[in-house]
Computed example of a mutant assay.
Amino acid sequence: MSEESQPQTAQDVYTHGHHESVVNAHASRTAQNSAAYVIPYLTEGAKVLDVGCGPGTITCDFAELVGSGHVTGLDRAPEVVEHAQSLASQRGVKNATFETGNIYDLDFEAETFDVVHAHQVLQHLSDPVEALREMRRVAKPGGIVAVREADFHGMSWYPDVPELDEWMDLYQRLARRNSAEPDAGRRLVSWAQAAGFTDVAPSSSNWLYATGQQRRWQARVWGERVLHSAFAEQALAYNLAEQRDLERISAGWHRWGSTDDGWFLIPNGEVIARA
């Protein structure tokens, strides 16, 4: 989902859900801080598909960059599409439209888009290779499919907080219970090749939370998500954690966020795959 990772079939379960803490976090993402590797390809007049667009912040940025071109934002969740439509109206973006859809069965003719983009989407899918094949189908010959995914096991933090180790272990088990791949970033080249791409350019970039404001924001996001989002609901439903476990992990996040020297690094894998 740009960023906003939306599952696309009945069997795909979105680990995060659409709690306010999730949507607000996704709304902090911009083309510059989350899709800089794509910007050189967003040329004047380009036609772009943003799969898993979430609240639309990256999509609207793309629309401003392509000028006379057009960007279509696609998400499975109707309530998130409404959020994106509202954002585009607020920003006065006229060349972006939003609709619901299925990444495995895109409702577009073959060879339609110059750029097909997905941000933090493949990690939540049960069949990321099939999703890439479908994205490739709707890309024009010579166009690009661009994807960016976090790598959870590549994340690092300081100081050591046992509850964050517990959080990581729980997230890994929960995501895999949902047939998803939380360490998606390191697998992008392999997935793109399996989808039939032969021209694949890899790169990587980070999100870093190391200032006081950034630490407090990240701690608040995950402190709330651990207790109130689909993450919490699924952890309890699958008997992977008890409520007291979630409360302890949430408190650990806030304790990390209150440090004066804390550091949290999220690495992201990226690929530009030529159709």
Rank of each mutant, 00 (worst) to 15 (best):
P128L: 04
A31V: 15
V23K: 06
A25H: 09
A36S: 15
V23Q: 00
G52W: 07
V93A: 08
R91M: 13
E111W: 10
G142P: 07
E111P: 07
F62D: 00
G45F: 05
R133T: 04
A146F: 14
T30M: 10
S34K: 12
Q90Y: 04
E64W: 06
S126P: 02
Q123R: 08
N33H: 06
T30K: 10
S126C: 06
H19Y: 01
H26D: 08
L42M: 09
V115K: 08
P40K: 13
V129M: 05
V51M: 03
A46Y: 01
Q90W: 05
Y41S: 13
F98W: 02
L122Q: 03
V48I: 05
A88R: 10
S89F: 12
H70A: 08
H119T: 03
L132P: 02
I103Y: 11
E109Y: 15
P55N: 02
G67L: 09
V121W: 12
V81G: 00
P141M: 14
L106I: 08
G92F: 12
G69V: 11
L125D: 06
H117R: 13
G17R: 00
Y37F: 15
Q11I: 12
A110D: 15
D114A: 07
G73S: 06
A110W: 10
T30W: 11
A139L: 14
T112Q: 11
